[in-house]
């Protein structure tokens, strides 16, 4: 007995690099990033869009990559946690997460960073409520969110009063 699957060539740009990969037609973007391309920064926490650990930026929008089919990203630009730093220079948000101790186990951190970066691009001066609202799709079980909120405030130039 055999399973019927076919493979699809996908042309995309990942973290600024033109990237061609071969996707199983059943692969989600998350599976393709992790299993085909070797970018394991995006994590699987629930595989149904409820936890945000697999957040990536797809053409400027935050998506749960577990809910996007790999074949859908043909021609798209994908940005993952691996693309946040500029070489060995961490982004202000990455530095703020370290300074504020905004992670404990770290499994949700890539998703939070990608989501928070998109927030700050749209709204450079968010209120605490706006940060909480924006990040409500990202679950963290370790921190109680306090230090994550403070890190985003710090990166936004707040929290230094």
């Amino acid at each position: 007995m055999t399973t019927q699957t076919s493979h699809i060539v996908v042309n995309t740009t990942i973290n600024g690099e033109p990237t061609v990969f071969l996707a199983n037609e059943r692969d989600s973007l998350l599976e393709a990033l992790r299993d085909r391309i070797g970018l394991t920064g995006a994590k699987e926490g629930c595989n149904n869009g409820n936890c945000g650990a697999c957040c990536v930026n797809l053409d400027g929008r935050i998506v749960n990559s577990c809910l996007v089919m790999a074949a859908e990203v043909e021609g798209s630009e994908v940005r993952t946690v691996e693309g946040l730093a500029d070489g060995d220079q961490l982004s202000p948000l990455q530095n703020a997460f370290l300074e504020e101790a905004a992670l404990q186990c770290g499994i949700c951190t890539p998703g939070f960073l990608v989501a928070a970066e998109a927030l700050l691009e749209q709204n450079p001066d968010p209120s605490e409520h706006e940060i909480r609202y924006w990040l409500a799709g990202n679950l963290c079980r370790c921190t109680g969110y306090d230090k994550i909120i403070r890190a985003v405030q710090l990166a936004a130039g707040q929290g230094q009063d």
Binding site: R34, D35, G38, L39, T40, G41, A42, K43, E44, T80, V81, E82, L84, A85, L90, Q94, F97, L98, E99, A101, L103, G106, I107, T109, P110, L113
Partner: peptide
């Protein structure tokens, strides 16, 4: 004191290897 954790950089860059990341 509050030094930056030693494993911090790996955990904000996606480099940290969790069990399911192993290939």
């Amino acid at each position: 004191t509050r030094p930056i954790r030693h494993d911090g950089v790996d955990k904000v860059t996606g480099a940290a290897q969790y069990g399911a990341d192993l290939q």
